[in-house]
């Protein structure tokens, strides 16, 4: 198991390093960063001055290593738009996004897994068809639109929940649904196919031949095996949710990291943009690694 996890850790580190290169490279994507910073109508002297001031005149490799060394210490520089430390800014905003991510994935799992199990118990039955239909419908609804509809319905027409803000738990209800429903169909489908496959497997037949009661077969023997791939998927989906928080947070005007990402992009705030891409990617890498570890614990075949 140690070997398996160390292998995964190596890959995770390599991926993280690559992502850092890409995040850093962003500032060169639109051409000379000094020109961009200087703005229009800048004289060549001013541009040269800015270039020297920000160290853009050094070799790119040196600039990258310098940036990375600072980043590793949590120093992403100062945001030119918000005029404060990027790290402080993000740390402040991340709380809402993480809360939302945890709530979203919980919602997706709590709805998706039972639905998948129910559908798998009677393939091609009405329940199964209904579950699959809901999944296809769910996957086709754009989340920003769904958010707006929910606002119209629950905030404007019924007045049950606030349309925006995170002042109380009520403010999280709609964003959680909007963030979570998009991952639900995938989780439901994977649970369903996993359960159908497992329920048709030889060892379930063995369990039945032993006279194990049906309920125990379903939960002890079948679900335990079917849930293993779902763990990996949930980690991936949770990573995606952080990205999805950009949309959700801007629809519900929640001032989390996703909203910050949108602000930094529309204001051309490069240091913040870089830091956010790196941090969101790192979260994804950490989630998937944790899922691998959890799977090694769930599946004895991965332990040896």
């Amino acid at each position: 198991m140690l070997r398996y996890l160390l292998g995964r850790l190596g890959m995770a580190a390599l991926v993280a390093l690559t992502v850092s290169v890409i995040s850093f490279g962003l500032i060169y994507m639109a051409g000379d960063p000094a020109v961009a910073l200087a703005g229009e109508n800048a004289t060549p002297e001013i541009i040269a001055q800015i270039r020297a001031q920000h160290g853009y005149d050094r070799p790119i490799a040196v600039q990258y290593l310098d940036w990375l060394a600072h980043a590793l210490r949590g120093d992403f520089g100062v945001s030119p738009y918000f005029k404060i430390e990027v790290a402080t800014l993000i740390a402040d905003r991340l709380r809402i996004t993480m809360t939302l991510g945890v709530l979203g994935i919980s919602f997706a799992l709590l709805v998706g897994v039972p639905m998948g199990v129910l559908a798998a118990m009677r393939p091609n039955s009405m329940i199964d068809r209904a579950a699959l239909f809901i999944a296809v419908v769910g996957q086709a609804i754009p989340s920003f639109w769904f958010g707006l509809i929910l606002i119209v319905l629950f905030a404007v027409n019924l007045g049950w929940l606030p349309a925006s803000g995170a002042d109380s738990w009520k403010g999280f209800v709609l964003p959680t649904i909007v963030l979570g429903y998009y991952a639900t169909p995938a989780i439901m489908r994977l649970t369903r196919t996993g359960m159908i496959e497992v329920l048709g497997s030889d060892y379930i037949r063995t369990a039945r031949a032993k006279g194990v009661p049906p309920r125990k077969i379903l939960f002890k023997h079948a679900l335990r095996n079917a849930v293993i791939p779902v763990v990996s998927l949930a980690a991936v989906q949770m990573g995606f949710m952080l990205g999805g928080s950009i949309v959700t947070e801007s629809v519900f005007a929640l001032h989390g990291a996703g909203y910050l990402a949108w602000q930094s992009i529309s204001r051309n705030d490069l240091p913040t943009m870089q830091a956010l891409i790196l941090i969101f990617s790192l979260f994804y890498i950490i989630f998937t690694f944790l899922a691998d570890a959890l799977n090694a614990w769930l599946d004895p075949r991965l332990r040896d």
């Binding site: 991926v15 890409i22 994507m29 639109a30 990573g239 995606f240 952080l242 999805g244 990402a261 990617s281």
Partner: peptide, 24 residues
Amino acid sequence: VQYLINVRLAMPVILVALAAVSLL
């Protein structure tokens, strides 16, 4: 290829797409 896939999956699509579009 697995490494490439992992790198690609680690980058949040919307964020990268937004950044790229805003820069380009």
